[in-house]
């Protein structure tokens, strides 16, 4: 049984239906890329998984039906979200951001700082005063401190300098190799996805239209469905 199991997931914003049937599964220790052009339902899928918006269909984590849980209970079940737009707690320091969300497990502040050394260097600095890349690293660190079974990274490198992007992809790849965590990455960077993810699911108009191994994703399909 997969750690995350999604079948025929639908969701709406008021009268506008955003998801028309998403199928997606991730096993423990696997990195899966969720791809698609802008407005195709990637972030809505993430919001549905995290129970930020209501949805219908099959949505299970480790066999538990997430539809029965409020957002914070779903997160406590083992979902760590790195949201779009580096949303840290701006008035807290780096260290406080990490401590405030910590739950017992193998990911401690020391281990997070080992994976993301910049956070150790900026420990006492307010999150609001960090650079974009550092804020993104903090968002990843904060999610890791909740000791998730499933880590979701929503556009984790959007708007960042190429060097910083490399640093973040490196950290995510290390995470995939060193932990048994399942990782769902939402991104349009095909080359990086091919390097770190084993499988991809592509969404179009709120439906999963392609699913398979990364090495099976040909250029023509990528250009047509992702636009790269």
């Amino acid at each position: 049984m997969s750690l995350l199991e999604i079948r025929d997931l639908t969701a709406s914003y008021g009268v506008t239906q955003a998801l028309h049937g998403v199928d997606l599964s991730i096993d423990a220790g696997e990195i899966v890329a969720l791809m698609g052009r802008n407005g195709m339902g990637k972030t809505t899928t993430v919001k549905a998984i995290c129970r930020i918006i209501a949805s219908e269909g099959t949505l299970r984590l480790g066999g538990t039906d997430l539809h029965r849980l409020p957002s914070h209970r779903a997160a406590r079940l083992g979902i760590g979200l790195v949201p779009e737009g580096r949303r840290c707690f701006r008035d807290l320091t780096v260290s406080e951001n990490l401590v405030a969300t910590a739950r017992p497990g193998e990911w401690t502040q020391a281990r997070v700082e080992e994976l993301l050394p910049k956070l150790g260097q900026r420990r006492d600095q307010r999150a609001a005063s960090l650079s974009g890349g550092e804020q993104q690293m903090l968002a990843i660190g904060r999610a890791l401190m909740t000791n998730p079974r499933l880590l979701i990274l929503d556009e984790a490198t959007e708007g960042l300098a190429p060097l910083v992007r490399q640093e973040i992809w490196q950290a995510i790849a290390e995470l995939g190799h060193s932990s048994g965590m399942a990782i769902l990455v939402i991104d349009k960077a095909l080359r990086e996805m091919a390097r770190i993810a084993s499988r991809a699911v592509i969404l179009e108009r709120g439906r999963s239209v392609w699913s398979g191994r990364m090495d099976a994703l040909d250029e023509e399909t990528a250009r047509r469905l992702i636009g790269v």
């Binding site: 995290c50 930020i52 409020p70 957002s71 914070h72 209970r73 997160a75 406590r76 760590g80 979200l81 949201p83 949303r87 707690f89 701006r90 008035d91 807290l92 406080e96 951001n97 405030a100 969300t101 739950r103 904060r142 999610a143 909740t146």
Partner: peptide, 15 residues
């Protein structure tokens, strides 16, 4: 303090 700033964001970290 985090809940005071952005309640929805603390929910996504399990609080």
């Amino acid at each position: 303090g985090a809940a005071r700033q952005v309640p929805q964001r603390v929910e996504t970290v399990g609080l």
